[in-house]
Simulated assay, not measured.
Amino acid sequence: MRVIYWTKMQLAKAQLIEKLGSVPGTELVVAATLPEALAAMPGAAGIVLYDAPPEEARQIIDVLKSPGNTVRWMHFCSAGREGFDAVGIPPGIAVTYAAGGASPAVAEHAMALLLSVGRRIPESLVQQAERKWDRAPAARSSSLEGRTMAIIGYGNIGREIAKRARGFGTKLIAVSRSARKDELVDEAAPLSSLHEVLGRADVVVIAIALTDETHHLLDAAALAACRKGVLIVNIARGGVIDQAALCEALKSGQVGGAGLDVTDPEPLPADDPLWACPNLLITSHYAGAGSPATLRRLAEGAADNLLRFSKGEPLLNQVSG
């Protein structure tokens, strides 16, 4: 059975090749480029891949929709698949994903961004570069102890953030479509009450999937509903925040600081106004990196589903098909 692994991202590449190639009866094709992946699709039974922009995803989808398509299983190693959802994965394709594979590392990164902007580390780095000793940032710094954190989106990543945030003495409110209760949080609220929750939160961490419903979920009105000086961290997708509105809120002080691992678009253009916003820390979408445990989970999860697929057994973390 031929299975394609399109190595669009390097995360867990060696581990995925090893684990996928060890599944009995598998002819693994490692495609370094999109044209290589497309060329290997005729006759293939499955494809393991990461999300891609709609213009690239569409080329994969076009093959899946062709009369001679043999691919019946897609496994995403990324947390999201917005590019493919935007162009429409055809029915009859089993779609699975790496549920929680990188969640602990992403949650660590969210806390790193939050602590950095709260303790005014970006300002201190500027001072360090200037060899300047100035305690002025102390008056603008904040602690998490006794503060209220709203976690917007409470899936695998949101829950891992809650685990880590509890150790800092924060009150936790989980905001999700289902308002699912959980022993790690003090309160669960529906997405429909977002603005009310924002008015009570000192810290907002965004971990919700990007959909038509959540595009610019944090727009100018939502940011105005926040407590003045709120800290915001986004490790979900850039499109969840209206970046122009965020920039204005940072300049006015309505938002006291923000940490972004994701932007819209990516890469963020060098002339984008976001780069110059005060007390803003931007990292280049690498929150899931740095953990050997993540690499192991991503590889083992893909290989486990490949084995199940080859045996006709129920797949894990299946979202469609």
Rank of each mutant, 00 (worst) to 15 (best):
I89T: 14
A98D: 12
S66T: 05
A102Y: 02
I60M: 15
G92H: 11
V87C: 12
G92N: 12
G100S: 09
S66R: 09
G80I: 10
D85K: 13
A57L: 05
A105H: 04
I61A: 05
T70F: 11
H75N: 05
A98N: 15
E55L: 07
A102I: 11
F76T: 01
G83I: 07
P91V: 09
A94Y: 00
G100C: 10
F84N: 01
I61K: 02
W73T: 01
G101C: 10
F84T: 04
G100P: 09
I60K: 03
W73Y: 13
A79K: 00
S103K: 04
P67L: 10
E82G: 05
E82D: 15
G101F: 07
I60Q: 04
F84K: 02
P53D: 12
W73F: 10
S66D: 12
V63M: 03
A99C: 08
E55G: 00
E56A: 14
V95M: 09
G101H: 06
E56I: 02
A57H: 03
D51W: 04
P90T: 07
I89Y: 09
L64R: 05
T70K: 13
S78Y: 01
F76E: 02
V71C: 11
A105N: 05
V106K: 04
T96P: 06
P104C: 11
D51A: 09
P104I: 08
K65H: 02
D85G: 00
R58H: 06
A105Y: 03
I60D: 03
